[in-house]
Design a binder for these strands. Structure first.
Length: 292
DNA sequence: AATAATAACAACCGCCACGTT
DNA sequence: TAACGTGGCGGTTGTTATTAT
């Protein structure tokens, strides 16, 4: 897969100016996967000069890449605080909720998941959530699927989060420091089950932040006051069946059937959320529709 | 063990908004 | 005010890893 193009970090023999028109050698831009060498060049350059002005950065650093490519590589991969590894149940829950509110506003959603990139969230949505919708033979934006998310998936996630944190500790909420009514304690970031996947070439860089997993709560913008409390963002007018589902959870009045109950509605169409269990199709699509 | 299918991830592309000239 | 450059975003595609047959 290696492109085999030597990049060597050679700096073009001209003064670095963003106003410099692209020369001939700028034209043979590299594409495809980044090499460790390129990563190093980019990291070193940003360490010395800071980020921004990506096009000129790419030129000055001697990278035969577009500014866009450099920016993307930095933001999604090389940035020290980028968080890698499995999406935790807390994060999943937050993604589902925020997506129900904002739709495919990945960058906005990512703001509330410290260290996660919009690209990663987008990938998560496409590979997991959309796949799930496909298995259910419904559109990911359909009310039906949203209801499944709301009444099955999310409570199940809550359950898992709960269990993982020790059920006596009270309700655990997505660990982004989001102030939610009745929230007692955010989960300890380091306690999540997600594993940090060392990057093949640049694991040292990716994990070099002061926090080993980069989970620094760098104060995301505050969620809208009504987040998590005004019901389901995807609902149409008048569809909100009581709204406030998280509140319901807190009050203990939520959907007790979500606990494992063979044959019950809660058993319908709900895979476990472990990486592996996602593909464990323990339920048949036909059964799902029959029961629905 | 070999092959196919699927999942997960990384990167690119096109579009758009914004600032500068 | 139009033209241009840049950065950001969301959609899509390509590649690699993993799992199933």
């Amino acid at each position: 897969m290696e492109m085999g193009v030597g990049i060597g970090g050679e700096v073009h023999g001209r003064t670095c100016s963003s106003a410099t028109p692209p020369s001939e050698e700028d034209m043979d831009l590299r594409r495809g996967p980044w090499t460790a060498e390129e990563d190093l060049i980019l990291m070193n350059y940003i360490a010395a000069h800071g980020e921004g002005r990506w096009n000129s950065l790419a030129r000055c650093a001697g990278l035969k890449r577009t500014g866009k490519s450099c920016r993307l590589r930095w933001l999604n991969y090389l940035r020290p605080d980028v968080r890698r590894g499995n999406i935790t149940p807390e994060e999943q829950l937050l993604i589902l909720e925020l997506h129900s509110r904002w739709g495919n506003r990945w960058s906005k959603i990512a703001q509330y998941l410290p260290g996660r990139t919009d690209n990663e969230i987008k990938n998560y949505w496409r590979t997991r959530v959309q796949k799930h919708a496909k298995q259910l033979r419904c559109d990911v934006n359909s009310k039906q699927f949203k209801d499944i998310m709301r009444y099955q998936w999310m409570p199940r996630l809550m359950e898992r989060i709960w269990a993982a944190s020790g059920s006596s500790a009270g309700t655990v909420y997505p660990n982004v420091g989001v102030p939610m009514a009745g929230a007692h304690q955010p989960v300890e970031p380091g306690s999540e089950s997600g594993q940090v996947k060392p990057s093949p070439e640049t694991s040292s860089a990716a994990g070099s932040s002061s926090d080993s997993v980069g989970m620094q709560f760098s104060s995301p913008p505050p969620l809208p006051a009504d987040c998590f409390t005004d019901g389901y963002g995807g609902m149409q007018e008048g569809e909100n069946e009581g709204g406030d589902w998280i509140h319901d959870v807190q009050m203990g009045g939520w959907w007790p059937e979500s606990l494992p109950s063979p044959g019950g509605y809660s058993n319908v169409g709900l895979p476990d959320f472990d990486q592996n269990a996602w593909s464990d199709n323990l339920w048949s699509v036909e059964d799902i529709w029959l029961q629905q």
